[in-house]
Design a protein around this nucleic acid. Structure first.
Lengths: 205, 205
DNA sequence: CTGGATTTTCAATAATCTCTGAAAGATCGT
DNA sequence: ACGATCTTTCAGAGATTATTGAAAATCCAG
């Protein structure tokens, strides 16, 4: 095999910049703030411990912004904190294992953005659910409705329609639950969950 | 089994509203415009063909907004267009099969937000890649750099570091490719891909 | 072809989200 | 305890994105 060719520093910086931009873009498309994604990208691609000033200077962002982004990344578990002897500054290091990364992202996103939906869907189903074993006399209306609703609003809805509404909520509930459980599977297993899944599925389908 | 209890219309509307709000919220968290997610939620949960005015009135949004959102949803393949005899208005119907829905969402998101990243990562790797079979004399610098860079920028980077940089890009490339292929798997298979995956994985891990 | 009905477009506006920078708060060595 | 260094906070400024509404385009029946 031929010898590795050396590359001028400016070209490496260019690669890093393009990587950071692309990663930031993707983050933004998936609902992560662009800057936070960029800070992570910087730490990942350089694979060097960096302090707030390093990040500020390289990304041309304010101290406050850098501080917030780094903290958020630490909360997500995507970067860890480190210290250097004789230096009071705090340094940050990006997790380099991409499987660990995807696990952490998945866990956090499930917790923050799927669970709340799941909760709401359950609540809603409680309303539309067949109340088979409920005592017949139970009042349907909640206590607190003092708004003068039009008479039409009180017309009872065809029970068949209610059942269909319930079924639609149920179907979504099942989907979201499946996604949630699937995610938890990865999270729960060791670091290689996604890779395992990929292999298994390739063989099956 | 006891008889299904009837529910006043206002309570159904309340369930629908809460569903729409929750769905919109989740959409926003995942980088989909809140309104677009809400319009879909409305069409899905009512399971009725609706025209632009219906959506405008129910969601209290402008005609333009409703029109744009409906069109986008149609482009995503999440709603289909329909017509009623003797009515020139266009009606929209939400896909009700949640597995088909997840397939369509996944396909579009892969295409729009993963593929571009994949492309960039490939481009970047082309730069850092070992140029084993490349002719030795090939110039490293691109033709067009007239900017007066500081001498430091031209200092060659330690080849070992370049290799490590390449490895980091490679690792991410592999991850993103895995996700992409995994997604394509669902898309390519019949409607039940996700459910199948869920079952298989539950048994394995 | 015409007129009315419907949809689409898009510049202006509004709402939302993000970033800054300076001040307040922490932390540490002496 | 003090001063120096570093970090966090957050109100205001700025940037971005979403929304409106009215005009323009499209469509269709007669």
């Amino acid at each position: 095999m031929a010898r590795q060719q050396s590359i001028p520093r400016w070209q490496v910086a260019n690669v890093e910049d393009r990587f950071i931009a692309a990663w930031g873009q993707m983050g933004a498309a998936w609902g992560v703030s662009r800057t936070m994604a960029e800070v992570f990208a910087l730490l990942y691609i350089t694979a060097r411990p960096m302090n707030t000033d390093d990040v500020m200077d390289r990304l041309r962002i304010s101290r406050g912004n850098a501080s917030m982004s780094l903290r958020a990344l630490a909360e997500w578990g995507l970067v860890s904190r480190a210290h250097k002897r004789g230096d009071r500054k705090e340094y940050f290091i990006a997790e380099q294992d991409v499987w660990a990364l995807s696990r952490k992202v998945m866990r956090e996103r499930l917790r923050r953005e799927v669970l709340p939906l799941l909760t709401t869907l359950h609540e809603l189903r409680d309303v539309t659910e067949r109340r088979a074993e409920q005592p017949p006399g139970t009042p349907l209306r909640l206590a607190s409705d003092d708004e003068p609703a039009p008479a039409d609003a009180h017309r009872p809805v065809n029970p068949a329609e209610v059942r269909q509404l319930n079924d639609r909520i149920d179907a979504l509930l099942e989907l979201v639950q499946t996604i949630d459980r699937l995610g938890e599977r990865f999270v729960g297993s060791d670091g290689k969950g996604l890779r395992l899944a990929a292999n298994v599925l390739s063989r099956i389908v």
